[in-house]
Amino acid sequence: MKNSKTLTYLDSVHYYGRIWGFVILGLILLFPIALMIIFNVGPNWSALLTGCIAVVPMYWAVGIIEIFTYIPMLGAGGAYLSFVTGNISNLKLPCALDAIEKTGYKASSEEGEIISTISIAVSSIVTTLIIIIGVILIVPLSPILQSDVLSVAFAQLLPALFGGLAIVFIAKNVKLSIAPIILMLVLFIAVPALNASKVGIMVPVGVLFTIAVARILYKKGKI
């Protein structure tokens, strides 16, 4: 049984997480409204409609899928922070996974929840600070960061990140990793429509498939 203290901490995470979440949601919506008031203009309604039709169906669907895919992995505190600061699959989640893994705690334990929250909070703070410094120094930094050499390196951020992360998690669970890796390799290689921009959609597919495989192996007592 969980003791009451555990419940109190998690409950408070949800309580404050909701408050912060709604406040920031309000601020984000206030930004374009403030622009309209300050510059005393309205949007170009027909362009707004066309733009939204192009963006909203796809990204709202992705948003809903992401919520259900990432909230269980991020933990409570991690979820409230990550869905505000973004860059979940390419930064926040790998950062938290690596941190939990190194402490040796289980991600599903309260210790795992706390380490995940600390890791994601620190990552959000550092990201925000680096961007602030970058915005201040944008004039001298632009030519360096946009140089051919560095853009080539940044273009390969995801393969480099997941190459390192994959080794750790595959080594930990060899039996469980074989089937999903084969499935994803076959899908991405054989289906031409699956390219770099579709990886976000394939994450939930991979997650559900791996859970199914895990359940079967677990029921058969092989894992």
């Binding site: 991600a107 190459g163 994959a166 998690f169 595959i170 997650v207 498939f209």
Partner: peptide, 19 residues
Amino acid sequence: LNDAMFLGMISAFLGYVFC
């Protein structure tokens, strides 16, 4: 279940590397 979710995400990104 946690490990399975993490591996599921990682496998999708591994597949993407070979796309």
